[in-house]
């Protein structure tokens, strides 16, 4: 496929994919390499990386193996990224499609609701949801999805608005297709590429949101999470700064990977940019 070929022509996109594969590999090999509970006591606290061959990324304030937490944390980050993104994208597509296709009062109402979500700072809404529903990991993931749907909804709506009066849609309507088939069979496949590209942005943001929550001690303390680890390390920042540095770097690389893949997809799906 031409798009695939274009994707692999860009070094940045290939780098992103490599990084992403690496993170997935971390997640998959976590149980194999670190079968013990990553949150359990492993050794003397605050050993610097490489000081002890058993803990090549060192230990944290509570004497837990940082490497184990990085590997198991990859799993959490990816899971949060994928699930929260799916929730946000599905919700966004539904709202955007209905709003853009039907227009009128339905559109007006849905857009006011979207406005409301976009007017309320999403991190604040996230705090509210956590305060009300607790900070179990499932709740956190759903909450992140719920605060992230407005942007994909607006994007889908804009696509639908520009597509719904295209002649091929009119032709479909004349052929006797009903609304559902027009929305999902005719318009959505054409509206999807930019939304899929945007999913990478949502995924990057989701991972960042969860890590920020965890950093503030508001995410689930019972799952290994990179943000949690950074939060733990704050108390020893002056001397043992590596406790913060290592998991932060992991977040950075993961988000970078997702963004690069997203950008690569965008360039591959919109070939007109490389004519220049």
């Amino acid at each position: 496929m031409a798009a695939l070929k274009r994707y692999f022509r860009s070094p940045a996109a290939v780098l992103g994919l490599t990084l992403l594969v690496a993170v997935v590999a971390l997640a998959l090999s976590a149980d194999l390499l670190f079968p013990r509970n990553p949150l359990g006591l492993a050794g003397r606290p605050l050993q610097w990386p490489l000081d002890n061959p058993r803990f090549w990324l060192g230990t944290d304030t509570a004497g837990r193996d940082i490497a184990a937490q990085i590997f198991h944390g990859a799993r959490m980050s990816l899971l949060i990224g994928v699930v929260a993104t799916s929730i946000a994208i599905v919700l966004g597509i539904l709202v955007g499609a209905v709003s853009g296709y039907y227009g009128g009062v339905v559109d007006e109402v849905l857009m006011r609701v979207t406005d409301a979500f976009q007017t309320l700072p999403n991190f604040l809404l996230l705090l509210l949801l956590i305060a009300v529903f607790g900070s179990r990991i499932e709740t956190v993931v759903i909450a992140i999805g719920v605060v992230s749907w407005p942007a994909p909804a607006r994007l889908t709506r804009a696509e639908f608005l520009s597509l719904r009066n295209r002649e091929f849609v009119e032709a479909g309507r004349l052929s006797g297709l009903g609304d559902l088939r027009l929305i999902f069979g005719e318009i959505l496949p054409n509206a999807l590429p930019p939304v899929i590209v945007y999913a990478s942005v949502v995924m990057a943001t989701s991972i960042l949101l969860e890590s920020a929550l965890a950093f503030l001690n508001l995410s689930d303390p019972n799952v290994p999470s990179w943000g949690n680890l950074v939060g733990q390390g704050r108390s020893v920042l002056r001397t043992e700064w590596y406790v913060c540095a290592v998991p932060g770097l992991a977040i950075l690389l993961t988000v970078l990977a997702v963004s690069l893949v997203g950008q690569g997809l965008n360039d591959a799906l919109n070939p007109r940019l490389d004519e220049q």
Partner: peptide
């Protein structure tokens, strides 16, 4: 630009503290 986009703000802040304050 891409690097800063991917950096979590809290971590950037902490690393800034390590370098510029500590």
């Amino acid at each position: 630009g891409l690097l800063f986009y991917a950096t979590p703000a809290f971590w950037l802040g902490l690393m800034g503290v390590v370098v510029f304050a500590i």
